[in-house]
Design a protein around this nucleic acid. Structure first.
Lengths: 152, 152
DNA sequence: CAAGATTGACACTTCAATCTTT
DNA sequence: AAAGATTGAAGTGTCAATCTTG
């Protein structure tokens, strides 16, 4: 009866939903209006100023089209700038703004705290084991994703 | 550098993306056109004919609005019927059709096989441990989800 | 032709508001 | 008022097609 409720795919989907919910609640509670996707994008821009959209997408394992929309919204909020690259006029150079920088820095500790809440159902040792398995699974399945991780 | 790439939330998101991708590829390869959400809904309807939308949503941990759209599409494909309940005219009684039943039965073994592919990165023992932790985490975080599981 | 980016189309997810019925 | 359902709006995710530039 209802076999699929115990299948990996369904439980992974639920855990993802819980994870996103905890992220949103934590950030909103602190008075910020930023999604986990937007936070990830800003975080990359801090370390890689001037990066183009395809490279950014690859570094956080997002689809090119999705990133386009995310960047639209971050640009609208004034958290980053998008300019045509002088080197290659097909590409857009992305730079985080001072305001974006301030938001990322303020939100980072909240995000760190939220990670602990997500794993609250596990003991100390289990948590480490779970993280290790998560890494193995995402590495093994990377090429099966529509948006594989591509580190530069 | 890029600390969030190793955070639970980000890895869970990637695993979910991989999981959905494997599901879609497997099903499409076999010539079917059905999403994992739609398959879950059909599976519940097999065991609970005449169920209403809110109850269905609770049993698979989905949002009411999401379920509404999913049911729209399943109805359009002819996989289920939606009729006003004579007991309570606010509610809609859902029934799987013969065609929906045939599709669910044909897709089930493909879905089972896909689950193994998702966990291919882990050894036998690890797989069991991972599933156990997934269950613990989803149970512990259930109420934090926007769409908690509500079994009837 | 290949690559970066965008657009249109469709599906999933959530929130707020609304409508009908209880 | 409370509950089942729907709608509108915004964000995320994928696919196919297109546009511009290399």
């Amino acid at each position: 009866m209802l076999e699929f409720l115990t299948m990996p795919g369904h439980l992974i989907r639920r855990l993802h939903q819980i994870s996103v919910s905890i992220f949103s609640d934590s950030v909103a509670e602190a008075g910020f209006d930023i999604t986990s996707v937007q936070f990830a994008a800003l975080s990359v821009l801090m370390d890689y100023p001037g990066i183009d959209q395809v490279t950014l997408a690859g570094m956080i394992a997002y689809d090119r089209v999705t990133i386009g929309g995310v960047i639209d919204r971050l640009e609208q909020k004034g958290y980053l700038t998008r300019t045509v690259s002088p080197r290659d006029r097909r590409a857009r150079e992305l730079h985080i703004t001072d305001e974006g920088l301030a938001v990322q820095r303020a939100v980072l500790p909240i995000v760190r705290e939220a990670q602990q809440v997500m794993l609250a159902g596990l003991g100390e040792e289990e948590r480490a084991a779970f993280m290790s398995m998560l890494r193995k699974l995402t590495e093994a399945g990377n090429e099966k994703s529509r948006a594989p991780l591509r580190l530069k």
